[in-house]
Design a protein around this nucleic acid. Structure first.
Lengths: 284, 284
DNA sequence: ATTAATTTGTAATTTTACTACATTTGTAGT
DNA sequence: ACTACAAATGTAGTAAAATTACAAATTAAT
């Protein structure tokens, strides 16, 4: 759905004379528009109230109050916090907030880039896998590490190596029915692409969590592409990692749901076991 | 200015009985709330209209229509309600969105819980450390892994062990000037608390990334407390992990800034080296 | 220039939100 | 356990806002 504020400017030519008046008043100061009643806005525009109402309907809203709601939303969206890069004069308060905010913004972008049908397909493959491997290098290696942690709880055979040679050997031994997931933001790490080729040559199902249209993506049977606005050539990998982890959460959740109720009970029992290794809240 | 939706959840304790009813109805489906009149919302909440109106005023809005405006804006900002738990009937689209949304929301909560002065102090300690160790168990182990990855690039002596025994031994050998960072959402993992005790007994500077007022927090010289609305006793650790990682990003950033310009040039050179191990974008 | 179509405005109606006041519920002190 | 006071909630009436139906005015077309 299109932003109302944009729609007003783009549809300007289709408006009638009085409607244009209204449009101009709103565009001149949208912030004040959302706090005016239909009467005051009509007066400001030198038109009658029903004209304002018709103007709202022309923009596919139910009426004036509904229009204000949409307008408020476009205004809120108009101030996004996407590219708030830290600069060298930032104090702790500034850089802390900037990093948190840009991480959240990147997650939102990543979320919108996800192909849901592909998520579903990958979950399918995971539930049927004989063995699941997670491989990544550099910053993505800890993502793979995390994925293993998660899937290990599900009591499925799961494999992870930090070392590129071990990854290579592991893939050489893979067979049909094995699923290998490669994680890389850039999708351009040579050695990882090599390993993916090996896995594929050995009939493993190769899945990539990476950016679209990259060398790694080309080697995969299925690609879960993540679009994260981050240039890891210039900056430390931050948001890309977080987005990957969240996607892992999504896969793990899909996996749990697919396995059904009895499976979730098993999980609960595992949790109960873990609990005994903890200090309970009461005897603090 | 605070997001209304968050304010509702955070002020929940200050609401009266009937106001809580209203709050719950709104939180259950904020999207539908902005399309209801005060009368229908009152009926849905089983309270009278003036109660709804009073509820709006308590949230520092001028009245019901103004409240709806604010609500619409919070929804547009993509910071939706925290506790959108996945249920077993959710399809891939639902659980994907729920997980991303609640992750973003948790990050926002975490951000607000951070003690900036403490961040600054910890960054200070890190820049002066002879050696930095990161330890975590379970889900937090991959966070420690990630932290090591980051700080390794800074060319500082950095240590990480996944194995609890190795962690123990490492801490037994620590000396004054060493900084040991323990990562744990619950702060109640017995063996990790033990290791923290050992580290402290050996004059290491012990820092915790954990929830406030936990056994682990008590063992630390400094605590970077993170408040994440997640019950890891019942659910898989998701948002807690992400918040920890983001905090690591903050620390790493603070570290870089503190080290100054010459240091950042070194980093750039390291990046250039890494680049040669990648496929460049052109010869796709 | 006349008529039909479109646009705009007026006035009445309906919906919505708000206020003042009454009732209920809860609480603290005797 | 009762009274008195305070807080919370609801009722009913009022004010405001938005929408509708219709009439007047403008515009375009023959």
């Amino acid at each position: 759905m299109m932003n109302v504020l944009e729609k007003i400017s783009s549809d300007m030519s289709e408006f009638s004379k009085s409607e244009k008046k209204v449009a101009e008043v709103i565009l001149a100061n949208p912030q004040s528009a959302i706090h005016s009643s239909i009467a005051t806005l009509a007066k400001l525009s030198n038109v009658s109230e029903p004209t304002v109402n018709r103007f709202c309907r022309r923009l596919d809203t139910k009426g004036y109050p509904d229009f204000k709601l949409h307008l408020a939303q476009s205004l809120a969206n108009g101030t996004p916090y996407v590219n708030r890069h830290v600069d060298e004069f930032d104090g702790p308060a500034e850089y802390t907030n900037k990093i948190f905010e840009s991480t959240m913004a990147s997650l939102e972008v990543a979320r919108q880039s996800i192909d849901i049908a592909m998520v579903n397909r990958v979950v399918d493959l995971l539930t049927q896998a004989k063995k699941i491997s997670f491989f990544g290098l550099g910053a993505s290696s800890s993502v793979a590490h995390d994925a293993v942690n998660k899937f290990f709880r599900f009591n499925v055979p799961v494999v992870y190596f930090e070392d590129i040679l071990m990854q290579r050997m592991s893939c050489m031994n893979s067979t049909e029915g094995d699923v290998v997931i490669f994680i890389s933001h850039t999708g351009r790490t040579k050695s990882l692409v090599d390993v993916a080729q090996i896995a594929r040559a050995n009939d493993a199902m190769v899945i990539g969590i990476t950016s679209a249209d990259t060398p790694l993506a080309k080697e995969c049977n299925y690609v879960l592409s993540l679009e994260v606005p981050e240039d890891t050539d210039l900056y430390m990998p931050m948001a890309s990692r977080i987005a990957q982890l969240t996607l892992i959460d999504v896969l793990a959740t899909g996996f749990t749901l697919r396995r059904g109720n009895k499976f979730r009970e098993n999980l609960k029992r595992l949790k109960d076991t873990l609990r005994s290794s903890r200090y309970v809240k009461d005897n603090l």
